[in-house]
């Protein structure tokens, strides 16, 4: 239960932070996520199996995700195609690339030392419960990420990214190239998503070529649930509520397990959940404009 809801909620929360940056801050609906998430997993597995030190592996994962996002941004910028098409193209190409990295549809990390196994060993004096140790490390990681992102979005560059999603003409009028900002934003977003993918691989102890299918929707559902429960115009709350949304999403999924008979049922479930959230949001809007 701790693992299923809190730990997975926190890991998918990192993914949802990436989705939040593109869908909400940049107003750039980006489906690259479905490719950059398994990319992060594949690259991490490859690095660990090759014996590359952990911290370098994480940097490589982030950079690979960043490159994937940049490619989507460049396709969109240079060919003037809509964000959805540009990102579907990258997502499609990443499927083949992920396969080339893994060289098999399924690669196990069994008996390989990961950040999670290392941390669990490290804190055995405190707790021997694996779930608790996982929970601790992900609380730590997510807190640090939120602090970093909160600071980033308070820098002049971060504010410019916010303005870009709000009003692109303003960015141009202020002498900035929106194309460059989009590359930065998408790189950051997909870098985070790849990091999330690499954590899932370490958590599940395997990487699977198909693990990315539909994750963008999981991220989006988390973002939307967060928006439903917390209202604010402060970036720190906007970031935190994404995590909260991701945990609630896991909770809902966990509680509805009796309904989900096939392992693939959760996709139908997530779709219906999003439709319900959209309907509730629309109703709320209607209510507030009437009242």
């Amino acid at each position: 239960m701790i693992e299923g809801i809190l730990v997975e909620g926190l890991i998918y929360g990192i993914l949802a932070l990436g989705v939040f940056i593109t869908f909400r801050i940049l107003d750039f609906p980006d489906l690259t996520v479905d490719g950059s998430f398994p990319l992060g997993a594949a690259v991490m597995v490859k690095c660990l199996l090759t014996g590359i030190p952990l911290w370098i592996s994480f940097i490589i994962v982030f950079i690979c995700g960043g490159i994937a996002g940049s490619i989507t941004a460049i396709i969109h910028n240079k060919l003037k195609v809509p964000s959805l098409l540009a990102s579907i193209l990258t997502m499609l190409m990443l499927y083949s690339i992920n396969m080339r990295i893994l060289k098999a549809p399924f690669v196990s990390l069994n008996k390989i030392s990961t950040l999670l196994t290392k941390f669990s060993t490290l804190i055995t004096p405190v707790t021997t419960d694996r779930a608790v140790s996982y929970l601790l490390i992900f609380i730590l990681i997510v807190t640090v990420l939120i602090i970093i992102l909160n600071n980033f979005f308070h820098t002049d560059l971060g504010l410019a990214l916010g303005a870009l999603g709000d009003n692109e003409q303003m960015i141009i009028s202020q002498g900035m190239n929106p194309e460059h900002l989009k590359i930065i934003g998408l790189a950051l977003s997909n870098g985070l998503v790849a990091i999330a993918g690499s954590f899932i691989a370490q958590y599940q102890k395997f990487s699977d070529i198909n693990m990315g299918i539909g994750v963008v929707i999981i991220g989006l559902a988390s973002v939307m649930i967060g928006e439903l429960v917390v209202k604010s115009n402060k970036i720190i709350f906007l970031l935190s509520r994404v995590i909260l949304g991701a945990i609630i999403y896991r909770g809902i999924l966990f509680l509805s397990r009796p309904l989900l008979i096939y392992p693939t049922d959760h996709k139908l479930f997530t779709g219906i959940l999003i439709i319900i959230i959209l309907a509730v949001t629309a109703l709320k809007k209607k209510g507030s404009s009437n009242g």
């Binding site: 980033f152 410019a160 002498g175 900035m176």
Partner: peptide, 9 residues
């Protein structure tokens, strides 16, 4: 005007 830096002004 111009590109923004990674600092909090």
């Amino acid at each position: 005007k111009g590109f923004k830096k990674l600092k909090i002004s």
